[in-house]
Amino acid sequence: MSVPAHLKYTAEHEWLDFDGDIATVGITAFAADALGDVVYVDLPATGTVVTAGESCGEIESTKSVSDLFAPVDGEVVEINDAVAAEPGVLNTDPFQSGWLFRLKVTGPGELLDATAYESLIGGE
């Protein structure tokens, strides 16, 4: 299962790509595979202030529905409208075009590096 080395991760199977104080957030290939075909993504609106570890959206597949958790404290500055229109991108390209939203980071969350995340999903 692909785990890009340059990204940070959460135990909730989200990834973060930091660029200064802006973090791009998505779900991992492991999460997308566990969910099955994603049919609906509910993202927080631009401007929403989110708190690390709290639910800020939903991802629904034919089989189940999962909360989307804010990985760090911050404010939503951009959302990926393309995934709302075509949620299947989360299955086909979770680490690139399947990104979900961008946060202006204001506080830390509990993040893992790629090695730690790999051992987390290897143990599941």
């Binding site: 099955g36 075909d37 049919v39 597949s61 034919t62 089989k63 299955n91």
Partner: peptide
């Protein structure tokens, strides 16, 4: 087996 490729494609 819960799925081989995609739930929707198999459906």
């Amino acid at each position: 087996p819960v799925r081989y490729s995609s739930d929707i494609a198999e459906h």
